[in-house]
């Protein structure tokens, strides 16, 4: 198996996911079977192939740097699980 349970737990931690014992076990198996399927990609010789960055050949477009309408502070805070004095509240950081 190319992917160990420790690796799965490490990747999950990077993605800010906590896994139970059972989840870590299942994901290790499932991700290995997915990777086995994905390993088909290694059959191809891709040395001289350019990676695709954008599917259409379009150019970057700039707009004038003008202030437009945005969300009001109240609207932006409306969905916050915790807020106070027009600000988002989070648990202590340090």
């Amino acid at each position: 198996m190319p992917l160990t349970r420790e690796e799965v737990e490490q990747v999950a931690m990077v993605a800010r996911l906590e896994l139970s014992e059972e989840e870590a076990e299942n994901y290790t198996q499932e991700l290995n079977s997915i990777l086995q399927y994905v390993d088909k990609l290694h059959e191809l010789d891709l040395k001289n192939v350019e990676p695709m960055v954008h599917v259409l050949t379009i150019n970057n477009v700039f707009r004038e740097d003008k202030v437009g309408e945005g969300l009001s502070r109240d609207a932006a805070l409306d969905n916050a699980p915790r807020k106070e004095d027009g600000q988002f509240i989070v648990p202590k950081i340090v």
Binding site: E7, V11, L17, E30, H42, L44, L46, P51, M52
Partner: peptide, 27 residues
């Protein structure tokens, strides 16, 4: 969660060239 873990794995250093860059070339 399964897909977030797979995607994070594919983008992590060491796997980027093996998986992500290869997939972009296949694209």
């Amino acid at each position: 969660k399964r897909r977030i873990i797979l995607g994070t794995y594919a983008l992590s250093s060491g796997n980027y060239d093996t998986y992500y860059l290869k997939a972009l070339k296949v694209r």
